[in-house]
């Protein structure tokens, strides 16, 4: 217990860092994920190709490697950002590939006839997707997106290895101060649970609310 009370601000900073990474990377991942899913079902071949390459590359690259690529690679092209921004970029892009596939599987649950009816009324592709298909796909993509964002929260620990303040990194200074390693990690785990269970709660709520609407 002492380890937590003695180092409340250290734990607090770590938790805040993880929350910050999770929230911003999630927003980025959601936006990019929906855009890429739209690309992957677009009638334009080149957009479909962009979506496919995006998903294939990001989903199949180990996240640590992606972090190295962003942190070491982007500065070579003159793009120098704070490490935290690099971390959000890497996490967000990586996770967007999984969000994209969840959204696409949701789109596939909507009967083809819905899109055909919209098109036969003269609606364009963006209108068909935005007004007809995605609203109906939304309900079935909530659970997999929830899982993906929980994974993102835990993946944010990798940012600690790139000198971004986050929860897992808290163990290093505490270890040097001689605290029990077990209790150090127990409280870190509690911190992650706070974040992940909050995400679960938000998505359960969303599922219930959208379950009532048609």
């Amino acid at each position: 217990m002492n380890v937590l009370l003695d180092n409340l601000s250290l734990y607090g900073d770590g938790l805040l860092g993880t929350i910050e990474l999770t929230v911003f990377a999630s927003l980025l991942a959601l936006v990019l994920g929906f855009v890429m899913a739209a690309f992957r079902v677009a009638p334009v071949g080149s957009l479909r190709a962009v979506g496919t390459v995006w998903v294939t590359v990001l989903r199949n690259t180990p996240l640590t490697l992606l972090f190295f690529a962003v942190v070491l690679g982007l500065p070579r092209f003159g793009l120098v950002l704070p490490f935290k921004l690099f971390a959000i970029l890497a996490l967000g892009c990586y996770t967007s590939a999984f969000i994209c596939e969840a959204v696409r599987s949701g789109i596939n649950t909507v009967p083809v006839g819905q899109g055909e009816a919209a098109r036969s009324l003269g609606m364009t592709f963006p209108q068909t997707l935005g007004d007809i298909v995605l609203p109906q796909a939304f309900r079935s993509v909530i659970p997999p997106i929830g899982s993906t964002l929980i994974a993102l929260a835990k993946n944010s620990a990798i940012a600690g290895a790139f000198s971004v303040t986050e929860l897992l990194g808290v163990y290093k200074p505490l270890n040097e101060l001689g605290y029990s390693i077990i209790w150090t990690f127990v409280w870190i785990a509690v911190g992650y649970l706070i974040v992940t269970l909050s995400i679960s709660a938000i998505f359960n709520l969303l599922e219930k609310h959208l379950g009532v609407a048609r």
Partner: peptide
């Protein structure tokens, strides 16, 4: 396509919209 109406075997009404909203949608959007 807006000039040619189509009626399908499986109706294909927009499941998440009311009857009235189904009919209003395309005139408003298109």
């Amino acid at each position: 396509r807006a000039e040619v109406g189509m009626v399908f075997q499986s109706f294909n009404l927009f499941a998440h919209k009311t009857v009235l909203a189904n009919i209003m949608l395309a005139p408003m959007k298109v």
